[in-house]
C-alpha cells in the first residue's frame, strides 16, 4: 500500500480532543446535542456519527496494577480499509477510492444503509435530519451517509485533526513511514506494555488509520483475524442484486431502504 495514512499513538494521547473539534471547524460540522457523557469517562458523544467524523474514546481506567493505573484514550476516525466493506456493498457505487482514501459521494448516496451495516468499525452514519452547516452556507443533507473523507474534499498537506494534535498522538504522512514509526514505537513501549501492537497492518487488507495500542486490539473493541476480513466480493454482489430488487418496494423511504438492505443481507447470508 502506498500513499498517505494517519498514525494514532494511544500512548501519547492526553485526550484534549482538539481532533474532534478541529474536524468540525474545518468541515463546518455542527456540534451534537448531548446531556451527559455518552460513553465511558469523558467520551462524548458515544460514537462517531453523521456529523462527528473524529472521535475520542476514553476507556475506563485499568487498575490491575494499582501502582501504575493505565488510562487509555483513543482517537478514532474512518480506518479507510484497503478492502473496504462499505465500498463493496454500496449499491450505487457512491463510495470510491480517492488517492487511497475511501470517500462517499453524497450526490449518489441513497441512504440505504448498506455501508452502515457492513462497517464493523461503526464508521459511516446516515444523517437523520437536515443540519445547517456551522458558520457557512448550506446544509448537510438528511438520509445521506457521512464519515471522514481525510479532507480529500478540501485537501491540505496535513489535515487539521493531525496538525492540531499537541502531543503527536495523531500524525499524518506516508503510510510506509508511519508503519515503520509505529512498529518502532511498539518496540519502545513493549517493556511497559508486553501486548503492545500496531493495529491496521493486516486488517481489511491494511488500514490507512494505524493505531499503536497498549494492549490486544480486542480490549479496545477492534476486530482481528476472521472478523477483520472484508466481505467476499461475490457475496457483496449478491447482496447488491437482491437489494436492487427489494428496493423497488421501499417507495424511496430511507427507513424502508434500510430494512430492505437488512433483508437482502440475511437472504444472501
Amino acid at each position: 500500500m502506498s500513499g498517505k495514512a494517519f498514525l494514532v499513538d494511544t500512548t501519547k494521547c492526553s485526550g484534549c480532543r482538539a481532533c474532534q473539534v478541529s474536524c468540525k471547524q474545518w468541515n463546518n460540522l455542527p456540534g451534537e446535542k448531548t446531556t451527559f457523557f455518552g460513553g465511558p469517562e469523558y467520551t462524548n458523544p458515544a460514537e462517531l456519527s453523521a456529523i462527528t467524523f473524529n472521535h475520542v474514546k476514553f476507556f475506563p481506567v485499568d487498575r490491575s496494577n494499582p501502582e501504575k493505573p493505565v488510562w487509555t484514550i483513543m482517537h478514532k476516525k474512518c480506518y479507510h480499509c484497503e478492502e473496504a466493506n462499505c465500498m463493496r456493498v454500496c449499491p450505487q457505487h457512491a463510495i470510491s477510492r480517492v488517492e487511497g482514501w475511501v470517500v462517499i459521494d453524497q450526490s449518489l448516496c441513497i441512504g440505504c444503509g448498506a455501508c452502515v451495516n457492513e462497517c464493523v468499525y461503526n464508521v459511516p452514519h446516515i444523517l437523520d435530519e437536515d443540519v445547517k452547516r456551522y458558520g457557512a452556507e448550506g446544509i448537510i443533507k438528511k438520509d445521506k451517509s457521512y464519515k471522514c473523507h481525510a479532507c480529500m474534499e478540501n485537501p491540505r498537506e496535513v489535515p487539521l485533526c493531525a496538525r492540531h494534535c499537541p502531543t503527536g498522538a495523531l500524525t499524518y504522512g506516508e503510510r510506509a513511514a508511519l508503519v515503520k514509526r509505529g512498529l518502532a514505537r511498539v518496540k519502545e513501549i513493549s517493556a511497559e506494555y508486553p501486548h503492545a501492537n500496531l493495529y491496521g497492518l493486516e486488517e481489511f487488507g491494511g488500514l490507512r488509520t494505524l493505531t499503536v495500542l497498549k494492549d490486544r486490539p480486542e480490549k479496545y473493541g477492534l476486530p482481528v483475524g476472521e472478523k477483520a476480513k472484508a466481505i467476499d466480493l461475490a457475496k457483496a454482489e449478491a447482496i447488491r442484486d437482491t437489494y436492487a430488487f427489494l428496493s423497488i418496494f421501499t417507495f424511496g423511504l430511507p427507513s424502508l431502504k434500510r430494512v430492505a438492505y437488512r433483508i437482502s443481507k440475511s437472504m444472501v447470508g
Binding site: 485526550g15 484534549c16 480532543r17 474532534q20 473539534v21 468540525k24 471547524q25 455542527p30 456540534g31 451534537e32 446535542k33 448531548t34 446531556t35 451527559f36 457523557f37 469523558y42 462524548n44 458523544p45 462527528t52 456551522y134
Partner: peptide, 26 residues
Amino acid sequence: RVVEHWQAGAMTRNLPWLNELVPDMF
C-alpha cells in the same frame, strides 16, 4: 477544570462544539 471549558465558562459554554463534549455540570 476540564480542557473543553474555560474558567467561568462564558467563553466556552456559548460554543456548540465544546458544549457537545461537556454539556453540563458534573
